[in-house]
Design a protein around this nucleic acid. Structure first.
Lengths: 194, 194
DNA sequence: GTCTATACGTGGATAGAC
DNA sequence: GTCTATCCACGTATAGAC
């Protein structure tokens, strides 16, 4: 309906983002040129600027959208604290496993964001941490958990869970569900649960 | 000792490495130019090549030396498994806290190592993991720990501990010794100790 | 919307004087 | 050992034709 014949903007745009995501994850933002992204998509470098004003915005959009998706997908944290924590652990591992490139970029490329963009992404990340901390604090208040410091416990748990992405590969010794079981066991113990 | 008058090689060399360490940690290997390193040291770019054959070797030397120092500083793992694990936890946090730049580079710049260099650094990292895994396995065999999978527990513990460097700053709410206490408590619980 | 062509800066690394 | 000067490749981004 009223789209110019031969227009590819609705297909090329996502392809630019996909290529950038993959290349940024593999080689790092600073090491990836616009020419290389264009090459992956099959267009010339100049054509990329129909889809992003510049390289920085391309990175920022990828990171912000990843964080937004992450927050939107968070499981409900109702019910008792222990089951809410279990849902969080399994969710974190599963969600991150499904998006290894976006996760890697979200953790590695923070320093390549310009200050204003950094502030936006950092605020989103903070909201994610707050979600977990609320679960831990509720469990501590109810006596279900034994955590001396909920903020530190939050950071420790997230660091532990995110580490899965550095080594887990489908088709290896363990299935994802087994990894989720093992980590849930370790997280539960670490916060003094049960 | 027959050193040429005016020679600074024994002082400029370390200064080149120090500057590279700091700049690589702050902005990333790919984003730091040889000119900028030279500027920090107070020499011209060409002079750097008296101290390193190229930029890649400069990065590699920093990473390899860091890993070598880390392995050399590992505490003895004798005694019972629980106390060996406690020593390891306190050591890891303390050692990493003392060298934030080197630690950051060791984790962030692996992908910028050329294949042969990567293999060397990866082998050293593997030896560090094996040290911890040996403690966990001994504890599991002795019945001191309850870990379903020592390899996963190893990676989980290291990820959790290394995460301290992303947020802890001296002069904040907690002293380092308190952080070590809290993490030792969480690690001990996570492997089912005591 | 994509192309070619290009402006313009900066990168790693080297040559040769001092 | 350090300097200046330079080579040449590659970076981001833009202009204007189609």
């Amino acid at each position: 309906m009223a789209r110019t014949a031969g227009s590819h903007s609705d297909i090329t745009g996502p392809r630019v983002r996909d290529a950038a995501l993959r290349l940024f994850a593999r080689d790092g933002y600073a090491a990836v040129s616009m020419r290389r992204i264009a090459g992956e998509v099959g267009v010339q470098a100049g054509a990329l600027y129909n889809y992003t004003p510049d390289k920085q915005t391309l990175l920022f959009d990828l990171m912000r959208d990843h964080m937004t998706d992450l927050l939107a997908a968070l499981p409900d944290h109702g019910g008792d604290a222990a089951s809410a924590l279990e849902r969080f652990v399994r969710f974190h591992i599963g969600f991150h496993h499904d998006r290894p490139d976006a996760v890697f970029i979200a953790y590695m490329e923070l320093r390549n964001l310009e200050p204003d963009n950094f502030a936006v992404v950092e605020a989103l990340r903070r909201r994610y941490e707050d979600h977990l901390e609320a679960i831990l604090r509720r469990g501590a208040d109810e006596g279900a958990f034994a955590v001396p410091d909920t903020k530190i416990a939050t950071l420790a748990v997230i660091a532990m869970l995110t580490g899965v992405n550095t080594w887990f590969r489908a088709g290896g010794r363990l299935r994802l569900a087994e990894v989720q079981d093992i980590y849930w066991d370790m997280v539960r113990r670490s916060v003094g649960g049960r």
